[in-house]
Design a protein around this nucleic acid. Structure first.
Lengths: 187, 187
DNA sequence: CCACAAAGCTATGCGCATTAGCCAAGAATG
DNA sequence: CATTCTTGGCTAATGCGCATAGCTTTGTGG
């Protein structure tokens, strides 16, 4: 019997693949096992269980999102940065809806995700710094921004916007709304 | 064996109770059966399965939300109505996070929910009419509003806002942002 | 009183997570 | 090169939840 040569990372890879075409709800150890060509119990040699696997996938995805967003705002500031951030965010979610949905809702609470989560938060905070926002005002602004992008993309990817009007148009308007809500201090 | 005297409605009641203290993830036929004092298979006499039960719960919740929101905007218009709507929305979600999370993401697609869903949508649309918005502009405005309230409440109830700053303050700012984003045509 | 529909039950099967315990692959050691 | 031992894989078995089948009882209407 040749060994499969798995590793924790490889199992997470497989899990991401499973999520990509079955959604987070389709993430089962059985599916991951099938995908890696191994019997389900063997996965326990690399992962303590389904719970940990979910956490690991979450961390992986958060890092991926952080990379994308960082790249998108690189070299930009203020409205330019916010616009780029919002487009990149939506772009990621649309490209990988399953992965996005696999992010646990409260990463900052879980020690295993706190690190990745706070790095992602830092990207948002950095953009707010460009407006001279710090501390509480920056926190509120980031929350607003997160609410907007998460809300829109969550509804969009779950097919919650029933009607036919262009979603791009809606999103453009949403970006305007956010920009208008940020401090207009002269540059 | 005295009969339990169940009915579809009673089963849905029990399901809502289960969701209230275990979240939508805790909704299992076994739990509902335990709650109603009946054996699990007996539930099939009132419901075709877990799937239908979820749908029925969804419809129930959507109607409840619609009632709350309608009442909140009754007699109000424009900014006043939007503010009331947003507060009522958040109020419901905070009061019943499990129920809110039990709403299927795309009610308009499911024939069994389309009716309830479109009535809820009508409440939002009616508020937009107060600004003279119709058709496409109204649709975009409703989408924006939904994105904001859904995003904020989803993150709030899942504990996704890690830091200590006041969520009420954030929400107040969010309301301002929304109001500022709506057409300012003189009244 | 009787028949029959409705509402409950037990028994069973299936899929998935998880645990326990066995065995072989292959690296490390002499 | 032979031996050992760790490690990654396996099969078997348990438990839980959904679902189906088929029996039994309730209680209602003739």
């Amino acid at each position: 019997m040749p060994r499969a040569g798995l590793s924790t990372a490889a199992v997470v890879d497989a899990a991401v693949a499973v999520i990509d075409d079955a959604g987070p709800g389709g993430l089962t150890l059985a599916a991951v096992a099938a995908h890696t060509g191994v019997a389900a119990p063997s996965l326990y040699k690399h992962v303590t269980g389904l719970g940990e696997l979910r956490t690991l996938v979450g961390a992986r995805v958060i890092e991926e999102v952080t990379d994308r967003l960082s790249a998108a705002v690189l070299g930009r500031s203020r409205d330019d940065a916010v616009t780029a951030l919002m487009h990149a965010y939506r772009g990621y979610v649309v490209a990988h809806p399953g992965r996005y949905a696999a992010i646990p809702p409260d990463p900052l609470r879980d020690p295993a995700l706190a690190d990745a989560g706070s790095k992602l938060l830092d990207v948002f905070l950095a953009v707010m710094h460009g407006y001279g926002l710090r501390d509480a005002p920056a926190v509120h602004a980031v929350r607003n921004l997160r609410s907007v992008v998460h809300g829109f993309t969550a509804i969009e990817t779950s097919g919650g916007f029933g009607l036919a009007e262009s979603l791009d148009d809606t999103y453009a308007q949403l970006i305007e709304m956010v920009l208008a809500g940020l401090p207009r201090s002269p540059r």
